[in-house]
Amino acid sequence: MNFYPIFLREMLIFKRRLLNIGYLFSTMITPLLYLVAFGLGLGRGISIEGISYLMFVVPGICAMSSMTNSYTWIATTISVGRLHFKTFEEYQVSPVTATDIMLGEILSGVVRGLFASSLILIAGAIFGAGFPQNPIFLLVWVLNCLIFACFGVISGFLAKSHEDTATFSNFFIMPMAFFCGTFFPIDNLPAFIKGFLYILPLTHANNALRTSFLGQQVEMISLGIMLAFLVISFYLGVITIRRSNR
């Protein structure tokens, strides 16, 4: 097991980005826009299932932002490192395994996802949504980052060009952000769409983050499905890395 150097590399880059105010600002701006537009603008005076819209949307945007940040960071760093700078060859000629690379990358994705989405929680708390109290929230939050970091690895290694990772994002990540219960409950949608959404990981991340955020009982099925997604996507990621090595 030697994933630390891979993790460390991403953290060194991340540290450098954090010192860049422009980067920090652009990380915050999109989810913050959503929060202000939906939570304070659209949602003022609206309540869903007996709770204020702000309380509804904060865990949703937290799920969305942890998803996109974990995914994008990893997919970009890998596809650029592989295709453009060829820095990945350094790992491939070093005695580290595909699992090491996978672990190092997804852990850095978690740091990145947690960082970006914690800014949302802070902003939400400032607007009066409060902080999550239930420790299950942290578990689901990390789980969500891990799953999408795994997707990021897969997409980064399969990409034939840097644009490919954006294509995957447009067809898979962005629709999930909108339809998996981030901004409105999926109960509002027709049954066949609902059935489809039920097999997507972000639906369950939203569900579990929201219930734990509100101090309600988290459905075990959501945790189970997310865990299954993690196991499968981790495995697929390791396979993808192994194949790309040759």
Partner: peptide, 16 residues
Amino acid sequence: DKELTGRENLRLHGLL
């Protein structure tokens, strides 16, 4: 790794 320093490049290699 062009976004890292020379020393960091070597350090990562040593760790790998």
